[in-house]
Structure formats: structure tokens, C-alpha cells
Design a binder for these strands. Structure first.
Lengths: 202, 202, 202, 202
DNA sequence: GATGAATGAGTGTTCATTCAT
DNA sequence: CATGAATGAACACTCATTCAT
């Protein structure tokens, strides 16, 4: 029974079915038929809401990115402390949030990364995402460090966050959030300490 | 023109064609037909030397892992200095060696990671590889740090190396080896410094 | 030109194409492509209506069985005489009906039998069919003979019917229905006579 | 290590491997590779001793036929009684011999029959076999019955023997030799009795 | 808006056969 | 004699996509 105004509902329904499918069988075996079955709709509907399979994949990736982004934003808004350290902590916590370190999300991100190497449209999305983390980190470090040091610290912390996330994802075991955060905080504090040392000596 | 004793030659030929194919079109589109064409052999030969496509993929992954492993081993053997720092440097350099940070290798590793999430046999290989890096790092840190600190340092450095590698791979640009090494060396030295501080104070 | 409600039509279409293909080239060479071509549809449609080739084969076998069964049932319904002999004649005639002793049907039955030896699902169907003939015969003999004799008579007549059918099928020539029926009737009458003799002597 | 005079040995080796393969996986899946593996030889050797796969199949069928034929011949040679009834019993016993009613033999015969419908060379072999049974039976009935009755009796008994064999083969259970022989003997005796009746009345 | 029938190219895999060794 | 490397066509099956309803 067709209805009007179904577009946003259907789109979200299909995106979630896509995540579910990738989690269950991997991106390679996540066929249109499986996704449609998981969403409880017909095969044909997908090309109605998304141009084709690539469109659905890209939309799903954009959705995942927006969840991450909104997560960090939300955490920042309830932040009393405005110090760089507090902001950096929020970014770290957001990246190790439960919404990012569960099985489905980790599998989907990995699949997206691999796919993005050969699909310009996905690659663009992926670069935006990567740059956002670096940019957010750099922005905070910049408040207490000279440009070069801030950039280097941001690159290092971004890499450390992604690396901790990656190794956790690939391990197959449950993600050890506490351990990851401890290591990231330590790195953050070491980088922030450079400023203190300098200002102390000055 | 059939010959005897072709097995090792053909196997290597096919593994290299697989790397080439994954580099060109991605793992999803790296069909048997394409790999065979790139290798200059017939389709059927693949099941003659590898049981099936999965066998070829797994063999290719094992090959990539052995290249990385042998690279580090070779560097270690020409090492005059036996200090932990020298050994750690060798491991870092090995992971950022040209054989690991070029396009084909990076694309193939990413594809393997994504695939391994849904293939137990590949996942096992992948865990061995992950553990080897951690284990090698931990072994060196252990020489100068207490167990807990050594483990933490190894986890952090392993994550930093993988993260630097990953972000470099995903960037699409040429890998900035010097920058990555500088950041990794800094982290290594900070961790090693914990021991020196302690022994100094003692 | 897609339409709705095509399922029963397409299924019958494909079953008949399967019979045609087996008749023409044998079951071993009755490929999906050939069957689809004979049916005038695309290859892919077969997995849409039947799970796979085995599904199509099993459906075809069920169809052949139902034709035989309905044939006997139809003959029985126009039967004025309710005597065991009349019923047995109907069964014999049904098994030597033109629908069973033509080339395609005979080739297909033979192929099914051979295949059923290695496919549990087909074997089950085949046993049901075999048992039906025996059961129908036994039921009629039972009306005039003690259980043991009825069973023996049914086994013998079932074997004779199948044997006559088989030798006719394998001969390659046109089936001599009259001759086969004469031999089967004789056997039937001999078995039925056992009762008459007994009742006469009583 | 090649040897001379291997031909008969190798041929028999391969024929027996073929029977084994057909028993295990059916004729459809009895590949050259499987047969060669079961025989413990290389793939290529088959075309050396038999022209191609069809040659091997035909040779296997000829072998099976000769076993049946020699079985009956051997039983006849140890026969004291020269009566038609004794000879007919020998034929019946030979057809229900253990060499004919075991799984492998039954599966192979069925497969041959189905295949022979589409292969002239096998069909010729098969007709020779069918005719031999009829001819042997007819020859014995002819000694006591007029031609027409002998032919009819032979046709009936041949069909009954084949039918009993067939239904036993398809049942999947162990062959009930005693029951089959009892039914066949009864038919034989009824046909032979026609002569006695006539001669008695004469 | 939504369905599912239909397509046909493409996939991995199997296989009988050939032939240099 | 015998091997097994190599081929390439054929196979069943999958799939994204299209489109009449």
C-alpha cells in the first residue's frame, strides 16, 4: 500500500538494512536482494530511492559519517570546560563511542575504506571524514602550540586514534575502550605538555 | 607448453597477478579471468595450483606478510647497534618501507582487512600479522621497561604505526614516509625515556 | 515483458521444456541454457521460480508422477464395473497409456531413476511412486485373496508392468502396447484365479 | 616406472575404478579425474588405453555384461539336470546373483540404461544384452512350447526378471533375492505347465 | 509509490582433452 | 609407458538493473 511522504522513512530503512547486511555477510556479499529482504521491501524499490547500488552505499557512508560527527558535536555542547584538553578529550571519546566500536560499524567502515580506494565518489567522502578528525584536533592544539607543532601533534593523535580503532576492529574481540582512551590521553597530554614546558621556561 | 616443476613459478606468477589486479580494480572486481589474463595464463590453471579463488587470495596474503616479515629481518641482520632503540627503529622503518607504502600493497592490505572480517581463514592470518608487530615491539620495550609499561608502549606504537600507515594509504597522495617516521620515532623516544628518567632518579 | 501472476504459467513452461530437453539430449546434457532456450526465456528465470536446477528436476519429476496418477484416477472414474479385475485392468492400462510409453516420458523416467540413486530428494519421490503402484495393485488383489497371496501377486504384477515398460523403453522401437497388456492381463488373471479355484473347491 | 605388457592390467584397473566411481557419486559426477584417482594413476593415462571417456564407459559396460554372461554359463556347466526347467532356473538365479544385485552393479546398470538412450554405441550393447536374456529364455521354453507360446512366455519372464530387479534396485533396501526368485519361479512354472496340460490332454 | 517478473552479462568452478617431457 | 601441466569451453548460478503493472 503506497503512501505519500515515505521517502525519508524508506531511505533510513534501507540504509539500516545495508549496515545490517554488511555486518552479516560483508560488503562483497551484501546484494540488493539481501538488503531489500532485510528491509522488508521489494528489490525494485532501491533504484527508486537511490539511483543504484552505489547510491545506496554512498548514502550509507554519509549516514555513518554524520552519526560520528553529531556524536562529537553533542558531547561538545554539554561541555562545561572550554580548555583545549577538554575539547580533545571529547573528540577522543567520540571516536571510541559505542556507536563506532561495535561490530557492524567497524565492519562497515573497513569495507568502505577498501571500496573507497577504487570509487572516486566514496573516496571523496572518505577524505572529508579523515580531514575532519585532523582538522578538529589541529584546531585545538593550535590554541596552545605553534602551527608546526600543532600540525604534527594533530597528525600523530589522529593516526593514534585511527590505529587504536583499527587494531581493535581487526582483533575480533570486544573493543577495550578504556585501554585505547588511556593511550590516546597520554599522547594528548604529552603533546599539550610541550606548550607548558615552553611557557614554563619562558 | 606444459612443463614439469612449474608449480613454484606459476604460483608466484599468479600471486603477483593478483596483487596487480587488486591494485587496478579492487578486490571486488579482481575476477579469476582478470587475474589469469594479467598472468598470461588460462582461467583453469588457478584451480590447478590453488584449490579455488579463496586459496589464491590466502596465498597472496601470506606472501605479503612474508615480504614484510623478511624485510624487517633483513634490516635487523645488517644492524650494528643492538640497543632497543635501534631495533625499534628497524621495525618502524620496515613498516614504512617502500614495499609497504606503495599503491598496490596498500590497496591489497586494506582489501584483505575488510575481507578478513568475514572469512575465518583470512582472519587467522591477519591476527598473526597484527600480533607479530605488537610482539616485536613489546619484546624491545621489555628490555628497558617494566612489563605493564612495555605492553602499553607496544600497543601505542603499534597503533601509531598502523594509523600512520592507514591514513597515508587512504589519503590517495604519495606516502610521506619522513613525516610518518618522525612522528613514530618521537613516540618511541618518549616511551623509552620513561626508563631513563627512572634510572636517572634511582 | 514482466507481468504479475506468471508463476504457474512459467513453472509449467519450464517443466515442459525440461522434458523436451531430456528427450532430445539426455539428462546429462540438459543444461539450464538449453532448457531456457527451449522454453523461450532467459537463463536466470529458472532460479527465480525454482531454487536451482535440482529444484526444476524435482518439480519435473513430481509433474510426471502426477500425470500418471491422474491418468489412472480418471480411468477409474469412468469405470462402470467395480470388480477387482476391472480395477486392475485400469491400473495396467494407465501404466501403458500413451502418456507413459512415448519417447520423452520413457527417457525422462529412466534418467530420473538413475539420478535418484544419488539424490535423496529424488529418491524419496521415486519411492513414493513405486509404492503407489504396488499399493494400488495390492489393494485390489486383497479383495479376493488372502493377505500373503495378495502381496505376492501385487509384487509380481508391479514388477511385470515395470519390466514390460522398461524393456519396451530400452528397445528403441515403438512400444507394443497390445502385447504388453496381453502378458500383464494373463498374469493378473492367473493370480485372480487362485481365489476362484479356492472358492470352487470350497 | 613404465613397464611392458601393462595393457590388460591397466584396463581392468580403470574399469574397476569406473564402477567404483559410478557407485560413489553417480555417472554424472564420475569424472576422469576421480576415476584416475581411484585407480591410482594419472589423468592422462585414460586416453592412452581408451580413446576417450566414452571408450572407458563402453568398455565398463562390456565388462559388466560379460560378468553376467559368464555367470550364467558357469552355472549351466555344473548343471546335472538338462531339463528346460533346470535351465530356466539357472538363468533366473544368474540374474539375481549377488554380482548383479549389489549396490554398485545396480547403480551402474541403471546409469548405463539412461545413458544408452542417447548414445548409439551404448544402445547397441544394451540391446545385445536385453536380447540375450530373451533369447536364452525363449530357447528353453521352445523345447516344450509352440513358438508363439514360447515367445510370449519368454517375453513375460524376461520382463518379470528385469522388473523384479529394477524395483529391487530402486528400493534402496537390500535386495530380497528369495522373494524375487519365488515370484519368477512361479511364473516359469505356470508357463511350463501349459505344455503339460496340452500333453496330458493329448 | 511499490512490486516482482524478467533479463543477460558475469562469476567461480569443473572438466575432458592434449601434449611436452 | 606414464605424467601432470595446461587449455578453454561449458556449466550452474548470482546479480544489478529495468519496467509493465
Amino acid at each position: 500500500m503506497p503512501k505519500v511522504g515515505m521517502q525519508p522513512i524508506r531511505r533510513q530503512q534501507l540504509i539500516e538494512a545495508t549496515l545490517q547486511a554488511v555486518d552479516q555477510v560483508g560488503m562483497g556479499d551484501a546484494s540488493i536482494a539481501l538488503i531489500a529482504r532485510l528491509a522488508g521491501v521489494s528489490n525494485g524499490i532501491i533504484s527508486h530511492y537511490f539511483q543504484d547500488k552505489n547510491g545506496l552505499i554512498a548514502a550509507t557512508m554519509r549516514y555513518l559519517m554524520s552519526v560520528l560527527s553529531e556524536n562529537v558535536t553533542a558531547r561538545r555542547q554539554v561541555l562545561g570546560d572550554d580548555s583545549p584538553r577538554a575539547h580533545l578529550q571529547v573528540i577522543i571519546e567520540g571516536n571510541f563511542d559505542a556507536s563506532q566500536v561495535n561490530g557492524p560499524a567497524m565492519k562497515t567502515w573497513l569495507a568502505f575504506w577498501a571500496t573507497s580506494m577504487h570509487q572516486p565518489s566514496l573516496h571523496r567522502l572518505q577524505r572529508i571524514n579523515d580531514h575532519r578528525l585532523y582538522s578538529n584536533l589541529c584546531c585545538q592544539f593550535r590554541r596552545v602550540l605553534p602551527l608546526d607543532q600543532a600540525r604534527s601533534a594533530a597528525r600523530g593523535l589522529a593516526a593514534l586514534i585511527d590505529g587504536l580503532w583499527l587494531r581493535g576492529a581487526l582483533s575480533g574481540d570486544a573493543f577495550d575502550t578504556e585501554q585505547a582512551q588511556r593511550i590516546a590521553y597520554e599522547y594528548m597530554d604529552i603533546q599539550l605538555a610541550k606548550q607548558e614546558c615552553k611557557s614554563t621556561s619562558a
